[in-house]
Design a binder for these strands. Structure first.
Lengths: 290, 290
DNA sequence: CCAAAAGTGTTAAAAGTACACCCATGC
DNA sequence: GCATGGGTGTACTTTTAACACTTTTGG
């Protein structure tokens, strides 16, 4: 079969020059969440859990010294998923990570160097199985406690529709650092079409548009935790129902009652003949079972 | 602030050479769905609806003469969304299209020419407002009726988990052409981690990995129709409840009863003082209201 | 005994489902 | 009248939610 220029496919491919047009740079970034136990000082009280995000401090321009998601420029011979695993492997010592594609960001001026398109992957990590590697020279890799709170909700009528503006405070913190950020989510419904836009209102030392990505990640987790089994990816293989409940409460930022929560997830877990001991009544351990 | 080489950001950016590494090519493709009425030959019977996908026939290598999604190579100064709109504008005459980012495909050998990464956008079109443009020279742009049927479901135990294999027949057809394809969806649950893989089993003249993309699109629509208002994007501004119900039934491939469907969507629509006339009792028209 | 959390039961409200019936229209 | 679809009511089931109570443990 010949094309309009009378070339066979073989001839066409031999002549094909990918460099005839300029191509954007392309990176893959990882947004990694994990759960950390905050040891209770009262033996009788349960350990509280915290949701954490992995960030690393840039050591070069642009955005030098800001905190960013781990990422890599893609290689010509690796798939997106392979690149996301490479970004992960460079920073952590992982096993059995849950990783899924989150979103691709391609605004023209999102990187000061040149045009960069970035596909992000969302990862959920069971910290009991994985650790951050020893930090590299000149490089800091840190888990940040993650908190998101709604600070305002507005809804106004516009022509042929509704405009909704939500403001969130996103606080990322650890022993030394507190990053205090604000984003705005604008949901426009005009006629039948709903569009959503995420805007950075206050950016506290987070590089690029990575604050947006972090928000989109938590939103994805919040949606998926309701209908999928991603919560289990954040826990060790054996867990108590209370621990699982804490994960749900942490992510959805709402409380459940024990009895109702038990019913909700009862058909996805299986009790085993082991108990978690502590300063109170031992709790039965469960494992995930589809 | 200086970097490790003692450069300011300005100096760094001036020295930055994006061409130091080879970059993959990058395209944005559109997967467009619409609904078409099949005129009933019995005046008393309702028109049946069909779901359609827009494909165009390639006029050059590679995959010459196969049917593909409309797409464009990205320009250095346009965002992904702008590129998706450009791909759309070249083929159709649209107004108020619902468009959302679907997924980014980056397997190394998915394009014979060179490494190409593609971000896909899913569009839902109300055909009453939009039309295909006159086809270009040597180019055919066609709506294909879309049907997907499950042909097998297997579930087997594997080490530490479950493997589920679903096979679907995807038929794309119009007056002249019938494309008969088969794909396989493999859902692996190992330990707590679930992964999904889409494989092409039989590809009937569809270019690149676009059959995979079409499957992912219908899957996205099926999920979103349950909790969002995308169904309305496929309908004109004024519609009857039966028409809306048909859209739901078409996409989810299941039947509802009138009374129950009414309750399900009742709070999202508003009756207006107009009626759809036909060979039977006139039906009240509704409009979408959030 | 008491505090803290594990674990279970009971009930009411809400959402989803099945089905039955009457209405309006044009032939 | 009758076929076809429009429109509504009722009764039943399932799911969700609220909350109350009992059990087990270490101090």
């Amino acid at each position: 079969m010949l094309n309009i220029e009378g070339l066979t496919e073989k001839e066409f491919l031999e002549k094909y020059d990918p460099s005839q047009f300029e191509h954007p740079s392309y990176t893959v970034d990882d947004l990694l969440f994990a759960i950390e136990e905050k040891q209770s000082n009262d033996v009788r009280k349960l350990n509280r859990k915290k949701l954490q995000v992995l960030l690393l401090k840039r050591t070069n321009h642009p955005y030098i010294n800001t905190w960013c998601l781990p990422g890599v420029f893609i290689k010509m011979d690796e798939s997106l998923e392979e690149a996301s695993l490479r970004a992960l492997k460079e920073k952590t010592d992982f096993k059995n990570i849950y990783l899924e594609q989150l979103y691709t960001y391609g605004e023209v001026n999102r990187d000061k160097r040149t045009r960069v398109i970035t596909t992000t992957y969302l990862g959920l990590i069971d910290k009991n199985q994985s650790q951050i590697k020893e930090t590299f020279v000149n490089e800091e890799t840190k888990w940040f406690d993650f908190k998101i709170n709604t600070i305002s909700m507005k809804k106004e009528k516009i022509d042929n529709g509704v405009k909704q503006i939500l403001e969130y405070k996103i606080i990322l913190s650890n022993e030394e650092i507190i990053l205090d950020n604000i984003i705005q989510v604008i949901i426009n419904t005009v006629n039948k079409i709903t569009t959503k836009e995420v805007k950075i209102v206050k950016n506290d030392n987070i590089g690029f548009d990575h604050l947006k990505i972090i928000y989109c990640g938590i939103e994805r987790i919040r949606n998926k935790i309701e209908y999928s089994d991603i919560a289990f990816s954040l826990l060790p293989d054996k867990f108590t129902i209370a621990e699982l409940q804490q994960v749900y409460e942490l992510i959805l930022n709402k409380k459940f009652t024990k009895a109702n929560f038990q019913r909700k997830i009862g058909n996805r877990i299986k009790p085993i003949d082991e108990y978690r001991l502590g300063g109170f009544r031992p709790a039965k351990l469960y494992i995930y079972q589809k």
